[in-house]
Design a protein around this nucleic acid. Sequence first.
DNA 1: GTGAAAGCGCTAACAC
DNA 2: GTGTTAGCGCTTTCAC
Lengths: 343, 343
Amino acid sequence: MTKATIRDVAAAAGVSRQTVSRVLNDKPDVAKETRQRVLEVIDRFGYRPSSIARSLTQGRSCTLGVVSYGVQYFGPSHTLAGIQHQASEMGYTLHLSLVRQPAESGVQILHDLISYHVDGIIWAVSEIGNNRGWAEEELCRSSVPVVFLDMRPCPNLPVVNIENRVGGYLATKHLFDQGRRKIGLITGPLDWWSAQERRAGWSDALQGAGLTADDFLIVEGTWSAASGERGFRRLLEQCPGVDAVFACNDQMALGVLKAARELGRRVPEDLAVVGFDDVPEAPFFCPSLSTVRQDLSELGRSAVRELVRLIEAKQQDEAQVEPRTILLQPELIVRGSSVVPGW
Amino acid sequence: MTKATIRDVAAAAGVSRQTVSRVLNDKPDVAKETRQRVLEVIDRFGYRPSSIARSLTQGRSCTLGVVSYGVQYFGPSHTLAGIQHQASEMGYTLHLSLVRQPAESGVQILHDLISYHVDGIIWAVSEIGNNRGWAEEELCRSSVPVVFLDMRPCPNLPVVNIENRVGGYLATKHLFDQGRRKIGLITGPLDWWSAQERRAGWSDALQGAGLTADDFLIVEGTWSAASGERGFRRLLEQCPGVDAVFACNDQMALGVLKAARELGRRVPEDLAVVGFDDVPEAPFFCPSLSTVRQDLSELGRSAVRELVRLIEAKQQDEAQVEPRTILLQPELIVRGSSVVPGW
DNA sequence: GTGAAAGCGCTAACAC
DNA sequence: GTGTTAGCGCTTTCAC
């Protein structure tokens, strides 16, 4: 059962392909009864126009490319969901490309997506090391708009970020306000730009409070709960008097909670803990976890809106639209792990 | 800067488009120096052939459609990652379609994907209520193979499943083996087929042990941690002597742990708990969570392999390949929440 | 070895 | 209102 084409429909309805096309696209200038007849045939044949043939002639596919990494994890999966919902609302479908090595150059992937005639691309792989090095040079000669997520703002590229540095500041300031003075830090892998930013926010807060951001207060983690657990034990060796920890994601914070339990440190009395992300399970941790919420769904949605803006601007006038940097604010969520009742 | 086409390359290299095409596709019958010359021009122009134009002529796009739901959650996101990895290894890219209402009929989505000329489709939305009712009728007249995940096996359709019923049995049998005799159940939403299956496994185990699967041992949850917490409180009302709970995912189990803590029931001494999924955080819960591991990545990978098998069979000979049902086995993971040390 | 012609399924531009 | 022509970028005949 080979699929019906516009030819078959035209023949069966006794009209030209053009007329069928007009009916399909709700163009005027089709007689009511002609339209009716065509619609009937379409229905009878179960005919559906080919989107890719359309893409070829119209020069647009209503498809966005999405490049992501580790879509099984919290951040990427929530971002992807936001991207999809906004794209769907705006009439776009997604072509998905998941890289296996976040550090690899994107040139190959970029060209692959372009060969599928995507109208634009959302680069949702975090900036890690120099994995964006190719972008500026490659994109100036590319014809497709690309919006980047989670990357150091760059005047020539459209970027959408959560303000990780602000988030790190909020978490740390909150711990300080609770009377903590030895505030340890368990970072993400420091080749991640976002991890560096959260650390910078921690530094900002300490220095703003007249404390020093000493190296012995810092342990580098891997984002995993296991690394949070190990990290806290290390931190205790480096700084036995530590009375608070800012873990740069909720998984690592969960590891800290476990280690503290095993080492007999009470949370929050002996040790205040704040995480980052606000995973849905955070209120159910033991104790419930204070954290910094980032609206990843909105991150994805914003990226789509910005991308569509660029796409449409490109179609309308030939004039170049200047790229924007969009920043979203994180929010401190206070729960049991950082506040001693009645303190 | 408009993109270079095969025309431009042909002109610049002083050959015909066919010759360029031959070079692109590594066909023989091109003189070494001609090939060299063409390759140089391709490189100089940064030319990349259009995948969609190719799709049109070749009748295949090397693209798989994936229909998913709630990709921000654990199950769907891990399945998607598995799908992507296997697809990528086998030379396919993905066209993603996320439904917002899991219960809606898929006919529209199916046709949309087909219009993009996907070579095959993986239907990764769980079977809920009658949301697969359209499938059998629609697919017999469809030209594109579709593999379904997480659905009641059906002789006419290719299906890949985790054996949820076995998982439910393993969890419950384990609790029985630990000496528990009042084993409560917190299910997922019972219009989900997988939730029904896990319940059936619980029933199987109880009946196999000579116990009765009483209704007052069952509470229906929503998969969320909050519903697990509420569920356990309800369960206590319905059956005050409950000494074990099988929560049908790890989030709900986490909610049970929290409720038990607040109600002064010690886990595992007073209450043994087993979850389902084995989320990466489960070993870090308080206490660490026993659970049933399902290899969702492998689920996705199997689906892709099966789909590609169907695609290729269709291309080779015209003969219909009979659809298969593929079943993957879950695995019991025993941790602290279900075993009293020294018992 | 290479090129010319025809066609994949559709739409834009222009007739009538 | 409707049909014809041409073309999107590529590949598949089939010549030469």
